[in-house]
Every structure is written in structure tokens, then in C-alpha cells.
Design a protein around this nucleic acid. Structure first.
Length: 585
RNA sequence: GGUGCUGUAGUUCAGUUGGUUAGAAUAUCGGCCUGUCACGCCGGAGGUCGCGAGUUCGAGUCUCGUCGGCACCGCCA
């Protein structure tokens, strides 16, 4: 045995014991006649002490060690002369009797400390060293614990974890697929699953009733801080359920996770329709940690025309920033610049301050009477000291999204987006379809297997764009952590939905024939949802990016800079696959 | 496909209007130090200023191109 104890477990009560420890050298402090070494492993840090008077040769050997050397030491646990309250093991140290260097180490390119001196790029290249840092390791420990608790909860609820294949076929709609060439079937390709969607529905047809899987999914799209090309879903499906059953089941799972992992008692989750989310927050994933809801101001400003920008607008909406009337001209100009950034795209911003005497002073004073401005104040529920920010525009949804960005920015500036505070809700009643300018047709907003709300089914014939779906998202702090729907289990209805999406019966048969065929053999009513595990963990860890809760993540360009993936293929491999590379440009 | 920020010592960064030998901190190496725990003190070494071209008497600094990184828009059912 290399060790009898870990570096995190010894306490004062262990004084006198002979122990063997193994770990990495965190830091060496040479005092002349004495040398102290902090020995680190996964479990903590234990101080080793060497004394010139006790054992000069051993002390000399200790002085020759370097950072990240791998050591085994045998010694006695002793009480310290001067204790360190900052360490759990700070009351003891190991008086070393025997020192074995299991492996020397070259100096790492950055310091293995919580406050490291390494940048993102470098730490990614040496990810195996980055993972030695406690703060990074904690994220993976949290991830393990969450995945474990998910399994515990779902197992207790009678769910079966079933594995589904990774080599599947390409599906239309949705994201771009990652593809894998088939050597045995030249010219043909597998696709990696964007999610096990169809397979889990087939498991329902098979009668599995309650399925889940913690599973990798793959989407070949451009990346963001919260998007990786391969990511992990907690994928779930249930039979003989209605939307209400699923919301309750998984609200329960979230409550379990919050309780066990964070010690938080999650209240009953509010539910907001998609239409309200857009109306009051300009987003289908509103950050409800703070209020600052949109107030629509069309009635007020159109009743007293004057400002041509407002007069011609199809949408005028405002938010009230409490206590921000003190904002300087410079700060307001900066906010205007913010909303005018190309990524946000507003033309301008109107502001109004509520003065101490209750009067309203705005950037559009010359167009509106104080009476109109007082109506504005009343509508915004604004008080003395508040700042009202208003955006207007031709396109209602676009302007709402711009106002959403402004709201989030104000929330950030006012410190209302505390990562330690959690606000969860369900967003329900999503539209079935959204119009795609690019394809000039309706696209499924969730996916093509989502069931319409029964009362909206007649609208499929008359006004498909207004049909609402039995689809729902769980949103935490403005992050979509999960989403799902009740599925169509009727082959006829499914055919109709495919038709609206623009598939010919032949295309539908080719792409989804096996699913519709399966439904003919008795499909139970079913539905489910999937959580993004990476996002869920990063929320619990208070991270800005999901990368730090993934052991070996990829960068912006989808590269693994440690492995050097993706890379070129050996010509022999290409030949076996009967592939020729023909790069454009 | 697009926008913005960014690239200087192993690392994190500073570097003025274009002007002498490019600095700091930290890491590293050497010396001193018997209770440190971000130990302290003294000293040393360490640079193709991402790469390429241009402007200029002179470029880390200005211009153009290019490559990498980060954030975002498009995209991501």
C-alpha cells in the first residue's frame, strides 16, 4: 500500500500515529534549519516537517524537491507548535522519517493554485494540470454528485436507465449533425445523435414506461460559453402522462437536487406562458431573480402624438430601474451605446428621471407635456429617484428582445444577478411553429414530434402559426436548463404535422417511417423532457461558462487544444473509407 | 458568415506623442534564515514584443494582411 491515510483526514486526535502519505508537493518553505512541505492530494493538504537537527540527510533531500513532485512519506503525526486555522489539518503535521520520490516533476507552466497565474488558453492546453486545482476539481465533484442524485431520484421514481446507440442516422430539422463514415458501407454515414429523442419514444412504444439516461449529445453548430459540440443531457421520457404529470415529476427532481446539493428548499415553481414571458421579459428564458418587468406604453404615447419615432412605432416598452435617477449623462450615453451595438441593434433609447419632487424629466420633454410624462410615471409604477428606460421599434418581437438585453444589463449593473440566488420557473405553452425567413416555411419550435394543445388542433388547418404546443422549459436565472413536450402518439396527427413542416409524404416516410410505423403498433400517450447537465451544474457552481464543469472541454473553435483534435486523417484511413478530401479555398 | 476585445519574460500584465539598453509582479535558479503556512531577506538568469509586409531617419507603439484566443450576433428543433 502506497498510503495508509489521505492528505485531508488527519486531525489532532491522530497525534502519535505512524502514517504513510502519498501526494504532490504543493509548496516548499525553507526556513534554514527547518523545511516545511505542503503535500496535496484530492482530499486536502497535510504539512510535512523536516528538521536539520533531527535528520540532516532527510532535510537536505527535502530541500532538493520541487513543485508537483510525487512523494511517498512515512512519519509520525504530531501536534504543531504554531497551528494554522485555515487548514482542516492545520493542528497537526507529519514528522517525516522516510521520504520516497515516486516521480519528479518539471516546473508546471502555471501555478497549481486556486488563484492561478495561468490564462484560459494555457490551462486548457494543460488541462490535466488545471484539474489538479481544488476549485476546478470541486466542479467535477459537484457534477458527480448531481448526476448521482439524479440517478437516485429517478430510480426511486421507477425510471430505468437505458443506453441508446451513438452511431445513428441523420435527422432533418434541428442542428447540423456530426457524421461518421461507414467503412463497411462505403459512401454512407452515421450521424451522432443530437439527442436520443426518437429512440426514447420508441422505448415508450416498447412499454418501458419510465426511461432516463445521462447521455452525450452532439450538435455541429457554432459554440458559446454555454455551448459545447458534445454536451450531456439528463434525458427522460414517461408514458401515460399529461403535461402536468411531467412538470410535477421533474419539479420534484429539481427540488431534490436543490435540497440535497445546495440545502435550498425550492418553492413551488411559478408557471409563465411563453406569451407572457415575451411580453414582460422579452425572452423565453426570463431571468426572474429581479423584477423590472416591461410595461407597454403604446397607449400613452399614441394618445398624445409628438415624437415621430414613437408615433410610427409598433411597440413602445419601458423598464423602471429603481433608484437610478442619479445616473449621469455619461452613464445614460453608455446605456444608449449599449443598446445601439450591432448585436442588439436598437436605434436609440429614451430615458426619463423621476425627480425628488415627483416631476418627470426626460430626453423627450420637448415632445410631451408633463401630464403625459406623469401618465408614464404612473404606468411604470415609478417613484421619486427612479429611472425609466424606453425602447421603441417597428418589429414587436425584435424590440422586446432589445429591451430584454437592456433589462439584463441594468440587472447586472445593479447587482441583481447574484449567482448564489436562484429563481426557477416553468415557461409553458410554447408555439408549435416559428417562421423561418431562411427556409421560407414554418419550422418546429421544439421538435417535429411535439403535440399541439388539443384545443388548438383545429387551428392546424386554418392558422398553423398560432397553434400552441404542449411544450415546456425549466428556466433558472435566465438559463434554459431543461425542456420537453408531450409527444404526438397518433400516426395521423404526426403525418399532418410533417405536412405543415413541408415534408412530402414520401420524405416523411423515408425520414421517420420507422417511427410512424411503430406508432401503428400501439403507442402509449407519452412525453418527456431533457435537462442540460452541464448548464445545471454550472448554475449550481455559480460558473459563467459550462467549460469549467467539463473535464476536457473544447474551445471556441471546437478544438481540444490538449489533444490537438480534430486532426488530419492518415491517407490509409481515408482510402479504407473510400473518401477524398477536397478543401474549398 | 459577421462584430468587438485581445496577443510583450515560463506566467499575469504595464509600456506615455513613434525616440537611448523593453519594465513590474509572480514563477524559476543561487545564497542567507529553526515554526513557516502567499514565509521573509539578498542576488542571478530569463524577450524573434504572435507572424508577414508597409509607412518612417527610427515601429512593441501607426497602416494593411495573416494566425491564435475570448465574448457576442447569425446559427443552436
Amino acid at each position: 500500500m502506497y498510503r495508509t491515510v489521505t492528505c485531508g483526514e488527519l486531525r489532532l486526535a491522530d497525534a502519535g500515529k505512524s502514517v504513510t502519505l502519498a501526494g504532490w508537493v504543493q509548496r516548499i518553505r525553507k526556513m534554514g534549519g527547518m523545511t516545511f512541505i505542503d503535500l496535496r492530494d484530492r482530499y486536502g493538504i497535510t504539512q510535512l516537517s523536516f528538521n536539520q537537527e533531527t535528520d540532516a540527510a532527510l532535510c537536505d533531500a527535502a530541500n532538493k524537491l520541487g513543485r508537483e513532485f510525487v512523494l511517498q512519506v512515512k512519519g509520525v503525526v504530531v501536534e504543531r507548535y504554531s497551528k494554522n486555522a485555515a487548514l482542516p489539518t492545520g493542528e497537526i503535521e507529519i514528522e517525516v522519517k522516510e521520504l520516497n520520490v515516486l516521480n519528479p516533476a518539471v516546473t508546471p507552466p502555471f501555478t497549481i493554485e486556486d488563484e492561478t497565474d495561468g490564462g484560459d488558453d494555457l490551462r486548457m492546453k494543460y488541462r490535466y494540470l488545471d484539474l489538479r486545482r481544488t476549485c476546478v476539481r470541486k466542479n467535477l465533484e459537484l457534477r458527480h454528485k448531481m448526476a448521482f442524485e439524479v440517478r437516485r431520484y429517478l430510480d426511486e421514481q421507477g425510471f430505468l436507465e437505458v443506453e441508446t446507440p451513438v452511431l445513428v442516422n441523420s435527422t432533418p430539422e434541428g442542428a447540423r449533425d456530426f457524421v461518421v463514415p461507414s467503412r463497411m458501407n462505403p459512401g454512407q454515414f452515421y450521424a451522432l445523435p443530437q439527442s436520443p429523442q426518437i429512440l426514447k419514444q420508441l422505448l415508450m412504444v416498447s412499454g418501458f414506461d419510465r426511461y432516463f439516461q445521462i447521455v452525450k449529445c452532439f450538435r455541429d453548430e457554432d459554440l458559446r460559453a454555454d455551448r459545447q459540440p458534445e454536451f450531456t443531457q439528463i434525458d427522460c421520457e414517461m408514458s401515460f402522462v399529461e403535461q402536468e404529470d411531467i412538470l410535477n415529476m421533474f419539479e420534484g427532481m429539481s427540488r431534490h437536487l436543490f435540497k440535497v446539493i445546495k440545502g435550498i428548499d425550492l418553492p413551488k415553481l411559478p408557471r409563465m406562458t411563453w406569451a407572457d414571458a415575451m411580453k414582460y421579459y422579452g425572452s423565453d428564458k426570463p431571468d426572474t431573480r429581479f423584477d423590472m418587468r416591461f410595461v407597454e406604453l403604446m397607449d400613452i404615447f399614441h394618445a398624445a402624438p409628438g415624437f415621430t419615432v414613437f408615433d410610427s412605432a409598433n411597440y413602445i416598452g419601458g423598464i423602471c430601474a429603481k433608484g437610478c435617477a442619479t445616473y449621469t449623462r455619461k452613464q445614460l450615453d453608455a446605456l444608449t451605446e449599449f443598446v445601439k451595438k450591432p448585436q442588439i441593434g436598437a436605434k436609440g433609447m429614451v430615458y426619463a428621471r423621476v425627480e425628488a419632487d415627483g416631476s418627470v424629466k426626460s430626453s423627450v420633454d420637448k415632445f410631451y407635456s408633463q401630464e403625459v410624462l406623469q401618465q408614464l410615471k404612473a404606468a411604470m409604477n415609478a417613484e421619486a429617484g427612479d429611472l425609466i428606460l424606453i425602447l421603441s421599434g417597428e418589429d414587436i418581437m425584435k424590440t422586446r428582445k432589445q429591451l430584454c438585453e437592456l433589462r439584463l444589463e441594468m440587472g447586472r449593473q445593479l447587482g441583481l444577478r447574484d449567482p448564489q440566488k436562484y429563481s426557477c420557473l416553468w415557461v409553458i405553452d410554447f408555439p408549435m411553429y416559428e417562421w423561418s425567413d431562411e427556409e421560407q416555411r414554418l419550422m418546429a419550435m421544439h421538435h417535429p414530434f411535439t403535440s399541439p394543445k388539443p384545443e388548438d388542433i383545429p387551428l392546424l388547418d386554418t392558422d398553423p402559426a398560432s397553434v400552441r404546443a404542449n411544450a415546456y422549459d425549466m428556466v433558472i436565472n435566465g438559463v434554459e436548463v431543461g425542456g420537453g413536450s408531450i409527444r404526438i402518439h397518433d400516426a395521423k396527427l404526426q403525418e399532418k404535422v410533417f405536412e405543415i413542416l413541408g415534408f412530402t409524404p414520401e420524405q416523411a416516410q423515408t425520414k421517420f417511417g420507422f417511427l410512424m410505423n411503430a406508432f401503428k403498433y400501439g403507442a402509449p400517450p407519452h412525453g418527456g423532457l431533457a435537462y442540460g447537465l452541464d448548464r445545471f451544474v454550472s448554475l449550481f457552481a455559480g460558473l459563467d461558462s459550462i467549460r469549467d464543469c467539463i473535464a476536457f472541454p473544447k474551445n471556441n473553435q471546437g478544438r481540444d487544444v490538449m489533444l490537438g483534435a480534430p486532426g488530419l486523417l492518415d491517407p490509409v484511413q481515408l482510402d479504407e473509407l473510400q473518401l477524398k478530401v477536397d478543401l474549398k479555398g
